[in-house]
C-alpha cells in the first residue's frame, strides 16, 4: 500500500539558525495510528506544522496522498485536519458557528447533519449555542477536534491532545481517537505521555533534538528493546550471592528474600535454565517466580538519554 504521508529528507532551520528538524524520513500508512514521542522541544510540533502548512520547510519533500504540500497545497490540506496543542479559540463565537466556519474555510458547502454528528460524537451537542469562552479546557479541546473533523479529513493530526487533561477525560479522548481510527481516519499524534502511545499507537516514532531516532511498530519496539526480568521469591533469605552465580546479572532485594535476574529475551539463550539449575545445585530454594518486561517508558527514557 502506498503511504498516505511521505516525508523525505525534511530539514527545518529557523531564522535564528536553530535547526528544529534534521533530515527526517517518514512514511505513514493509510489507517494507521502513529505516535510521535519526544521530550519538550524535540521538534514534534515543527514536524506536524510543516506537513500542515504552518511552517515552511527548509529542505526536503512532503507528499500527502501523492500531492506535494507546497505545489499542490489545496489538495493536500483538504485531506488533513489539525488539532493544535494550544487551546486557541475565538472566545466570542459559539461552538456551532466556529465549527461551521472551519468547514467553510476548507471549501465545503454547509452540511448541518455532518456538524451535528461530529458535535454529538464529541459530547458537544448540548453546548452548541454556548460561546467558547464559557467552556472548560477539556471542552475547548473537543471543540478543536470538532473543527478539525468538520471537513471530513482522511488524516488527523493531534498535537498533544491530552496535555493538561484530567485522567478520566484522557481515557475518554483515547476512546474517541480509537473510534476515529476505526472509521478509517489516519491519526498522527504527538505526546510526551508514554502511556498514551503505549495504549493506542500502531507504530511509534521517537524524536529528539530534531532527529527521528527510531521508528518501530509498538509491539516490536517493546520486544526488541525490552529487557526482561526474572523475579524469584526465595524461601529463605540469602545473605550474599554465591560466587558461582557471578556470571549472571543478578540482584538481591528485600533483605535477601527476592532474587532478580535481568536478561535479554531476544537472545537465543536467555540463561534462565542454567541459572535455575545452578540455584538448585547451591540449594537455593524458591517458592514463586515471575517475569517482567520493561515498559515503553523505560525504553523511551533510555533512547532519549543516549541520543
Amino acid at each position: 500500500m502506498s503511504p498516505i504521508i511521505s516525508i523525505h529528507g525534511l530539514s527545518k532551520t529557523y531564522k535564528g539558525g536553530f535547526q528544529a528538524l534534521k533530515n527526517i524520513d517518514l512514511s505513514i500508512q493509510p489507517g494507521e495510528l502513529f505516535a510521535l514521542l519526544g521530550p519538550n522541544g524535540a521538534g514534534k510540533t515543527t514536524l506536524i506544522g510543516t506537513v500542515c502548512g504552518l511552517v515552511t520547510p527548509s529542505e526536503g519533500k512532503i507528499t500527502v496522498s501523492g500531492h506535494d504540500i507546497l505545489k499542490d497545497y489545496r489538495k493536500s490540506r483538504q485531506l488533513i485536519g489539525l488539532v493544535p496543542q494550544e487551546l486557541t479559540t475565538d472566545a466570542f463565537e459559539t461552538v456551532w458557528n466556529t465549527v461551521s466556519f472551519s468547514r467553510g474555510l476548507f471549501g465545503l458547502p454547509k452540511n448541518p447533519e455532518h456538524i451535528e454528528k461530529v458535535l454529538k460524537s464529541l459530547s458537544l451537542w448540548d453546548k452548541r449555542n454556548n460561546k467558547l469562552m464559557t467552556l472548560s479546557g477539556g471542552m475547548k479541546r473537543r471543540v478543536l477536534i470538532a473543527k478539525a473533523l468538520s471537513h471530513e479529513p482522511k488524516i488527523l493530526f493531534l498535537d498533544e491532545p491530552t496535555a493538561g487533561v484530567d485522567v478520566e477525560l484522557r481515557k475518554d479522548m483515547w476512546q474517541q481517537i480509537q473510534t476515529l481510527k476505526d472509521s478509517g481516519v489516519t491519526v498522527i499524534l504527538t505526546t510526551h505521555y508514554i502511556e498514551e502511545a503505549e495504549q493506542m499507537a500502531d507504530r511509534i516514532g521517537v524524536i529528539n533534538h530534531g532527529q527521528l531516532i527510531l521508528i518501530e511498530e509498538k509491539r516490536k519496539l517493546i520486544q526488541r528493546m525490552g529487557q526482561k526480568r526474572l523475579l524469584l521469591d526465595l524461601q529463605e533469605p540469602l545473605a550474599k550471592l554465591p560466587d558461582t552465580l557471578k556470571e549472571f546479572d543478578l540482584e538481591l532485594l528485600e533483605n535477601g528474600l527476592k532474587l532478580v535476574y535481568s536478561y535479554d529475551s531476544q537472545k537465543e539463550d536467555s540463561g534462565i535454565a542454567d541459572l535455575l539449575s545452578l540455584l538448585g545445585n547451591q540449594g537455593v530454594k524458591f517458592k514463586d517466580l515471575k517475569t517482567e518486561q520493561s515498559s515503553l517508558e523505560e525504553i523511551f527514557v533510555n533512547l532519549v538519554r543516549k541520543s
Binding site: G53, L54, Y73, R77, P84, T88, T89, D90, K147
Partner: peptide, 17 residues
C-alpha cells in the same frame, strides 16, 4: 486578532490561497 489568539493556525492550514 487571530494572530494574537493563535487561531491563525486554521487559516494557514486550510486549502485557501
Amino acid at each position: 486578532f487571530p494572530r494574537f489568539t493563535g487561531t491563525i493556525y486554521e487559516l494557514l492550514s486550510a486549502p485557501v490561497s
